[in-house]
Amino acid sequence: MNVRSSDAPGTARRATQAERSARSRSALLESAARGLSRYGYGNIVLADVARDAGYTRGALYHQFKDKQDLALAVVEWVHENWLSEVGEPARRETAPVAELLALARGHAVFCRRDIARVIMALRIEFSEQDHPVGREIERTWETGVERVTRLVRAGRRDGTIPPGPPARKVALAYMGVLEGVAIALAGHAPHDQELTVRAVEGVLGLHGAQKAEA
């Protein structure tokens, strides 16, 4: 009788180990994201991260070699979550303005989660510092700025976004609004979403365009 690979001795055990490793990694990343947003990179204690996740410090060091490695993994993990929950759904919109407003709505909802604030906290902490974590934060930020810049230019080409300051300057203001409103209105749903959209509409010049058409 032929033995399928899934029935081979040890296969089930290896799969279980992989699943356990993935679960522990996810729990540790979420705990670290909460800790980094509350205490910052300089003050976070890895033993506390492990304990809050329900694991030992040894389990944490099995997954991450040091605090820097953990923080970099957190940045990547949060960004992946943001892309899945905000970035990719917004990309399904067919018009530049619709995508920009979908990004604003989705980002406001995403920032209701503890893990979202870690990016903002680390960006402030590592501002103007040459540090691997700071560089990764800035790379992630620049990716967002470039995306918004492209959408603003596309919106101006199709006439849905009025002329104004250079597209990159508008994109920087847009990203700043997302960050600022998320901080100021954290925990104030549903007003956070409505006011984020209003704010980015102002940055894009949509209010002035609507008045001109009225």
Results as ranks from 00 to 15, higher is better:
2 N>S: 14
9 P>R: 06
13 R>E: 10
14 R>W: 12
16 T>N: 04
16 T>V: 03
17 Q>C: 14
18 A>T: 09
18 A>S: 15
19 E>T: 07
20 R>F: 05
22 A>F: 02
24 S>N: 01
25 R>L: 09
27 A>S: 04
30 E>C: 05
30 E>T: 13
31 S>V: 07
32 A>D: 03
35 G>M: 13
35 G>E: 12
36 L>G: 05
38 R>Y: 02
39 Y>M: 07
41 Y>F: 12
42 G>S: 13
42 G>R: 15
43 N>C: 06
44 I>V: 08
45 V>K: 07
47 A>K: 01
47 A>T: 01
52 D>P: 02
53 A>T: 00
55 Y>W: 00
57 R>M: 00
58 G>E: 00
62 H>Y: 04
64 F>E: 00
64 F>C: 00
65 K>Y: 00
67 K>F: 09
68 Q>P: 04
69 D>M: 01
69 D>S: 01
71 A>I: 00
71 A>V: 04
74 V>F: 09
76 E>N: 06
80 E>S: 07
80 E>W: 03
84 S>V: 12
85 E>K: 08
85 E>T: 12
86 V>M: 09
86 V>G: 08
88 E>C: 07
88 E>N: 11
89 P>H: 13
91 R>H: 03
92 R>K: 10
94 T>L: 06
95 A>H: 08
99 E>V: 12
100 L>C: 14
100 L>W: 08
102 A>P: 05
103 L>M: 11
104 A>C: 08
104 A>G: 04
104 A>V: 05
105 R>Y: 06
107 H>S: 05
108 A>W: 01
111 C>T: 02
112 R>Y: 09
113 R>W: 14
116 A>G: 06
116 A>N: 06
118 V>Q: 00
118 V>K: 03
120 M>D: 11
124 I>P: 01
125 E>G: 00
126 F>Y: 01
126 F>T: 02
127 S>P: 02
131 H>V: 08
132 P>Y: 08
133 V>I: 14
137 I>D: 01
138 E>N: 10
139 R>A: 15
139 R>F: 15
142 E>D: 10
142 E>I: 12
143 T>E: 04
145 V>H: 08
147 R>A: 13
147 R>K: 14
148 V>W: 11
149 T>K: 11
150 R>N: 13
151 L>V: 15
152 V>M: 13
155 G>P: 03
156 R>P: 01
160 T>Q: 15
163 P>D: 11
164 G>V: 13
166 P>R: 10
169 K>F: 03
170 V>K: 09
171 A>D: 02
172 L>Y: 05
174 Y>T: 11
175 M>L: 08
176 G>N: 03
177 V>L: 09
178 L>Y: 04
178 L>M: 15
188 H>T: 11
188 H>F: 05
188 H>S: 13
190 P>R: 11
190 P>E: 11
191 H>C: 14
192 D>V: 06
194 E>Q: 13
195 L>M: 14
195 L>V: 14
195 L>W: 10
196 T>N: 05
197 V>A: 06
199 A>Q: 06
200 V>T: 15
201 E>T: 07
201 E>D: 05
203 V>N: 02
203 V>R: 04
204 L>K: 07
207 H>N: 12
207 H>Y: 11
209 A>S: 12
212 A>C: 13
